[in-house]
Design a binder for these strands. Structure first.
Lengths: 339, 339
DNA sequence: GCGCTTTCAGTAAGCGCTTTCAGGGTGCTA
DNA sequence: TAGCACCCTGAAAGCGCTTACTGAAAGCGC
């Protein structure tokens, strides 16, 4: 019924509490006693109470990770990297999914703070909302003061914490160059919520490169929607309804591109026959779409791994550390040269 | 610096520890003092120490979830359902990914036990390995005795705990019937690791239905591989190398079917022109493959939701509760009638 | 106005563990 | 053989919180 405590183990092994604790934690104890304690612990199916342990000052072994949506392949891939490193370090990951609700994100950080997680990872674009930023800062500052580690993936403005940044801007620019190289001159963009920093970077990088090449991106050729498959579907449909005349569509994320494929298919348009499509991220599945999607490949797993690593290693420098990971344009069959 | 404690708050508000605690927990306290405490807490950015709280007897607010691989869309979808219910109940989810390593699965349960998680969810097929089963039982039994709740998705043999079971057997049988109805008589199967209960059920259900229809499934037409995209690719390739003469391939999971698509494409074979392909699960992405995949649709989100619900509600009955969720065959363009 | 119940703040006892500190063997040196 | 270091073990002090339990003040009926 109740739990087996260290005291039960100590009594069973006929040693003191202190000795039992030491034996279980691998501190120096006479082999004889050591074995007796371990045997007793096993016999009683003892599991130390992590809370008591944490309270007594032992170091915590479970880090917190907050992402927008585990269901999204992008986050799943990054989380995969995080978990890999966590597993290698014997860490338990407390993964929270915010469902893209800023309020909930802050609530989660607060819970993680209460859990005294030694590190908190924030995965995914932040919100460019001053109110939100202030609230998040208010939550994070005392946490950092208390010795907590924070690392973020893909958000720059938020606080001065260690970050892993995919090079969205240059990746999008490079993609634009590649598409221009294929002869495209009329583009459309499926964009995400403007308050996400990622959107600003990718759209900005793409547009600037076009501009530099003397190609204008008609504001009417940009449709905004959620960063989801359905968002991509809606945005693409909207563009089609407006009378799309682009030869190439850039979806700010692969997930949106997937939705775009569906929208195009529903209208009887072929990719890349009628229109070329390019995405961003290189989530695993886009390789298997028909046609395989041209995209900017990000090392998704590494994004997570590096963030975890940052959170795990002390920041000796006085400034925030920033790991920049470049994307690489991968041309697949969803983009064709303009005839 | 160190952490702000309840004592600091009490002092700042000029009340006793007990009063501060009560005010913060919404117990009856003179409004005047109540406000003073809350104000002080806010001013100091106080966050209660969840460990001290747990140790002192307050109820825990973070449940544990163990799955094979968050990166897999199947688990991601189920986890999505879990998180949804968790969020609605103000619960934090500690999500662990075992990378399909049985040892790690047990290690995680042990950690979760140490965390005194009020509930543990095991998502995904169990292992049919007596040694593993014993070890897992040894871990779970004391947990249950201590009042812990356990719910599992998709594993029957393991212990007598509440479970959510997709109807793999009948789903596979129904699929077989549908495929027979299309005129197929020569089948091949991409199967998973035989020690997974899911494999036995799906393969069994499929094979039995064929047998009942007088159609034999040649053992040489079954290839085993990991339940992953690459596993599917390998298994399909192996079948092709063996000289596949089936008109229809059943992949035990959609993820494997995705790999099969790639293998087929690499050999220049078309789906369903040269061979029909069917999967199982109906993960979101298969709708967007070309061609869209015929599969057995499972209510993935509900799988997770129901499991969480089971874990959250007391089991008043004396027996384990079982929620069975049926699958529904969805015929899409990856399967064609035999000419 | 007296003695009762009721309300609510404060005191203090843990929750289960780690760790400092003290004490008692043991083995070594002189 | 006495003296000194060590090395281990055990006793005890918390870690930060919740929650009986205690006690004082206030509200009530007669």
């Amino acid at each position: 019924m109740s739990h087996v405590t260290l005291e039960d183990v100590a009594r069973a092994a006929e040693v003191s509490l202190a000795t039992a604790s030491r034996a279980l934690n691998g501190r120096r104890v006479t082999p004889h006693l050591h074995d007796r304690v371990l045997a007793a612990a096993a016999r009683l199916a003892y599991t130390p109470n992590a809370h008591a342990r944490a309270l007594a000052g032992a170091s915590r072994r479970s880090v917190g990770v907050v992402c927008h949506d585990v269901t999204d392949p992008y986050f799943a891939a990054v989380a995969g990297g995080v978990m890999r490193v966590a597993a290698d370090n014997d860490l338990l990951v407390m993964l929270a999914s915010t469902f893209r609700d800023p309020e909930r994100e802050i609530a989660y950080v607060s819970m993680l703070r209460a859990e005294r997680a030694p590190a908190i990872l924030l995965i995914g674009s932040g919100f460019e909302d001053p109110r939100w930023e202030r609230a998040m800062a208010a939550e994070l500052a005392p946490y950092l003061d208390g010795g907590g580690r924070v690392a973020v993936v893909s958000r720059h403005r938020t606080l001065k914490v260690d970050s892993v940044l995919p090079e969205n801007r240059s990746g999008a620019a490079e993609l634009a160059r590649a598409l221009l190289g294929l002869g495209h001159r009329r583009f459309a963009v499926l964009s995400g919520p403007p308050e996400l920093t990622t959107v600003a970077d990718r759209l900005g990088g793409f547009r600037d490169e076009l501009t530099a090449a003397g190609v204008a991106l008609d504001p009417g050729a940009v449709a905004e929607a959620a960063f989801t498959r359905d968002g991509g579907y809606r945005a693409m449909t909207e563009l089609l309804d407006r009378g799309l005349d682009a030869t190439c569509v850039f979806a700010c994320t692969d997930v949106m591109a997937v939705g775009a494929y569906a929208a195009l298919r529903d209208r009887g348009l072929s990719v890349p026959g009628d229109v070329s499509v390019a995405g961003f991220d290189d989530i695993p599945v886009v390789r298997d779409l028909a046609p395989p999607l041209t995209t900017v490949a990000l090392p998704l797993h590494r994004l997570g791994e590096e963030a975890m690593r940052l959170a795990l290693t002390e920041n000796t420098a006085r400034r925030r550390r920033v790991v920049r990971l470049p994307g690489a344009v991968v041309l697949r069959d969803s983009t064709a040269p303009v005839a």
